[in-house]
Design a protein around this nucleic acid. Structure first.
Lengths: 221, 221, 221, 221
DNA sequence: TATGAATGAGTTTTCATTCAT
DNA sequence: AATGAATGAAAACTCATTCAT
């Protein structure tokens, strides 16, 4: 938008400040992140970047042009997953269902987005100062907070559970068991997630030890 | 046991054909497994075997003499952890406390044995036909089954949770977050485990999806 | 010269078939060579060409349009330095000072033009058949020859030293020590150059071994 | 020696402190350093380490076992050359010839050991804290100092030239011209070295600018 | 024409595993 | 039996050069 109008008058002068992100480059970027996400889900976080590049249909150096090193790429994979998860929680909020059911549906949907497979990179990602990442984290944080508050207001959620508690537990419970193909893993994850969510609904039996977990607290850890 | 008595009687000077488990060889074996377990807990499952050997105070070739390849060593690490976990459940059974409390104490103790750190290797390990592993698995299975049945008999445990459900959830919840030092992780694990256990105690809210998880079912997956 | 006059007359709007050295294209060419020279001085001859292009404020493909490959660019860098050195010697000849002093001033001025940093490319450059390079080499050769002859006529320069001897020695003595920042190097170069020049002034103590070095002899070597 | 006698009594206990450097390993180490030196002389300091390994007749990983990274290997190459140069100066001191002639013979011999080819790494090497390197540097320093003092005492060497001045100039003057095969280079080096040495012998014409160069001063630069 | 993007070949380094003492 | 050494295959990353806008 701004881009468009700026370009109209400025095509001749040197001032081409931040340049337009070329269409094919954007497509490649997207393809690389997608390929990386898929391969992480299928083969774990140790995938060779050359394989990712091949899957994306680009040369390895193209990958490195877009993402200077492994961590950088991983940051963007995490960002893309967090973005999708944030969208899911916002969708769940939009539907006017039973409060706890919304929470439950969100959680299972997040699992289907393979949030667990990305987990090993989450803590690292939260340590980054990447502004986009922080923004998305806050968006996710606030969405989940809202959905939890609604359930809590309806008396459907124990008091001492935080956003961080939920997301970390959810993520951990659904992490792939290495050596296990995805499909094998899927036999458990929804089951155990259900079990866990049922527990959240029940009244507190005991005082939770440790500090309440917040997404901010995950940083620098 | 057999091992112990064999070692006692075999310390003669004569060279016997096969299977002479020399005392120092046994000690080395033990040291290697211990070193491997510690390093996995501290640095993840990707530790170079040379590092393990150094930590064990033996040459790398000695490691390979005892464990033909990486998987073999890992199998024994898993075995040793399972052995300790099995012992823990047996201890918990021996104490005559409140039934659910026994279960809870066992679970938290298992976490302190870093069961979560070994997790990534569990499914692989269960795929082996190693007889020792199967025996220990059965011992663990039956111990946990018993402690769960006691709690269930006391009306303290929902009906549809299996041994596999418990062990897999427990292990997943306490897996280290890579990039996170152990100590960082410890801030959550007991908290989330408590949360999960509280849920187990409550009456079932919903029907668990998926098949009930048994330790046998983990094999070949 | 020829270049200059051509540019003057060609700034019309009509598109001519071949060779239309557009003003901005010439400016880019100049900027690229300058950037290359500066970066070589600062970071050695291994600078990535992309860096050179960035420093010049042009795209990398523009660099390649002007200079088909690395060697070609380097040839022009050498040419530009040789051109400056040739100008320096001509300046020194114009001043009417003591003959040896002129030679000395020229040498120190050449060092300040970083002739030593370009050195690694000189022999390669001399191997080219590039006509501009040969012309400039001859100009330099004759300038230095003249200044040396004047000193020799005044009895201030030993007989057996050639233009090539002087230029090669001068260049070698002032080559940057890789791993050493420029400034570190500068602590020595003028000192050692002085030492060397003092030696040139003294009567010959011994017969110089090897063949007398001429600039032509540097070719194809 | 110590090794031998210690081994006699200690073969059984664990105390094998620093172990004996195995014969074949030593040979490989030597071969790698030699290959590296040769290839640096022939192809410059940028030689791929895989090529060095191939030339040494060992696998690349063997090279890395002995020298953890490029700098480490280079440090030892420099050490080996400095060691040979130090030996040369000691030999020159042992012969009772004319003082300046000893200095001259040493210088030309050092050139034949390709001291110039190693030059680009010298300043880096002097920044290292490697104790062996420092020891050898001091040995070289003191040898050259002695030979210079003898010449100075005989009135054959100008007063203001230091050990560092000599070694740096000598090294610079004989650096290979990249792009030039060794043999091409050899046409000049002895000639220009002679020229330089002749200058050292003459009385000082002018005051040398800059600080006097010492080998210590090369450190950290 | 000028440019950002793409790319494959090359370099450094690591590690599971085998070999020789 | 125990060990240090050796090794090749792989993985991360770089760069000169070509392509497409």
């Amino acid at each position: 938008m701004t881009k468009g109008s700026a370009a109209v008058g400025a095509a001749t002068t040197v001032q081409r400040r931040a340049a337009r992100p070329r269409a094919d480059a954007l497509r490649n970027r997207e393809r690389i992140v997608t390929a990386a996400r898929e391969m992480i889900v299928e083969h774990g976080t140790e995938v060779p970047l050359d394989e990712v590049a091949r899957r994306a249909g680009v040369g390895n150096a193209t990958l490195y042009r877009h993402f200077p090193d492994r961590d950088d790429l991983m940051g963007y994979v995490v960002l893309s997953v967090m973005d999708r998860i944030a969208a899911l929680v916002e969708e769940a909020l939009a539907e006017d269902a039973d409060a706890f059911d919304g929470l439950r549906r969100f959680a299972h949907a997040a699992v289907d987005e393979r949030i667990g497979a990305i987990c090993p990179m989450l803590s690292a990602a939260f340590s980054e100062d990447h502004p986009d990442l922080l923004a998305t984290r806050d968006r996710l944080d606030s969405g989940v907070r809202t959905i939890m508050e609604r359930a809590r207001a309806a008396g459907q959620l124990r008091d001492d559970v935080t956003v961080g508690d939920l997301l970390v537990s959810l993520t951990q419970l659904t992490r792939p068991l290495p050596g296990t193909c995805c499909v094998g893993n899927d036999r458990f994850v929804h089951r155990h997630l259900q079990l866990f969510l049922d527990g959240l609904r029940a009244p507190a039996r005991s005082v939770l030890p440790g500090e309440a977990v917040t997404l901010e607290a995950l940083r620098g850890c």
